[in-house]
């Protein structure tokens, strides 16, 4: 789709973003939409929740994203004995200097991969989630700013697995999107099996951007135009999640989307439009991100929620 009204700077941004997506697609094969959604999430300054079984490439995605964008990445494996300090960092008495020295935890990286977040006890979960919300950490009375951009990719096992503390709704709400990776299709899997050492490839990825560039992109995404007609549409969608479709209410729905979720939906749609080289949000952009943004808020389980969200999309007329 050609859009004639992009100015040169935006054309440049779009081209560079397309290159980023292309490079990601070379590492995580056959997951174009998930890649785009992950990048959209980053551009919209939101955090990403990946709900899937182990071994489908969640960590690879996080590392490839960090490598391609030139960001520092860290990985935390959440376990049932993980403490908040293990994530945030700890002050240790330095005998020679006669002072406490702060050892920054893994959270002080631009991309944090929180693996299997629902295995950790709630206290540890919430320490990370507070950091995500406030983008700063207070330890021993000192407030430390987290790096900007700051992007958390949390993965969680499907809830029915053993030994999991499901995230409460209030904390799920902190994630902009929840996506599923799913098994790769046959061609992609064959490619993967034949492709050799992926870790090595990820380590040697060329950086196509740096943190200041990413911040600029985030600003650009936030400035994408949203027409009043689309605000009506977003409101209609929100109302529909609250059961005001005029039809029957779905018994499986937990509850409707919050106004904050509405704002998040808008910023995700803006980022998606930027990724697709558009100076304004179209209904299609909202529809593209809506299942990922609304799914984990509507029902337990990203898959069930996304299905529900898609049904809602079909039911709500475009104003």
């Amino acid at each position: 789709m050609t859009v004639r009204t992009l100015n040169d700077a935006k054309v440049a941004t779009a081209q560079r973003l397309a290159a980023v997506v292309a490079q990601l697609n070379r590492i995580v094969v056959g997951k174009d939409e998930a890649m785009r959604l992950a990048l959209t999430c980053l551009l919209a300054r939101g955090h990403l929740l990946i709900e899937d079984i182990p071994g489908v490439g969640k960590s690879t995605l996080a590392q490839a994203l960090a490598g391609t964008l030139g960001l520092r990445a860290a990985r935390v494996q959440f376990t049932s004995d993980l403490l908040p300090a293990d994530i945030l960092g700890v002050s240790i008495f330095d005998a020679p200097a006669q002072a406490f020295r702060f050892h920054a935890g893994p959270v002080f990286n631009s991309v944090v991969l929180a693996d299997e977040i629902n295995r950790a006890p709630p206290k540890t979960q919430s320490s990370l989630l507070e950091a995500m919300e406030e983008r700063q950490v207070s330890i021993d009375g000192t407030t430390r700013k987290l790096p900007d951009p700051f992007f958390v990719i949390a993965t969680q096992n499907p809830v029915e697995q053993i030994g999991a503390y499901p995230l409460p709704e209030s904390q799920l709400d902190r994630f902009l999107m929840a996506v599923e990776l799913g098994y790769p299709d046959a061609v992609a899997e064959r490619d993967l099996l034949a492709g050799g050492d992926r870790r090595g490839q990820v380590a040697s990825l060329p950086a196509l951007a740096d943190p200041p560039t990413l911040l600029e992109w985030q600003h650009e995404a936030a400035a994408v135009h949203v027409a009043p007609a689309l605000l009506d549409y977003v409101q209609a969608l929100l109302a529909a999640t609250r059961g005001n479709t005029g039809g029957e209410t779905d018994a499986g729905a937990r509850r409707g989307l919050s106004p904050r979720a509405g704002l998040m939906l808008l910023s995700a749609a803006r980022a998606w439009a930027l990724l697709n080289a558009r100076p304004m949000v179209l209904p299609e952009d909202i529809q593209a991100v809506f299942p990922s943004v609304a799914g984990h808020r509507l029902a337990a389980g990203a898959r069930a929620g996304a299905l529900q969200a898609r049904a809602l999309l079909r039911a709500v007329a475009l104003p």
């Binding site: 789709m1 050609t2 859009v3 004639r4 949203v226 027409a227 100076p279 304004m280 179209l282 209904p283």
Partner: peptide, 11 residues
């Protein structure tokens, strides 16, 4: 499609 999108949803 492009022109209508531009007119309806564009700046």
């Amino acid at each position: 499609g492009e022109a209508y999108a531009q007119l309806r949803y564009g700046p």
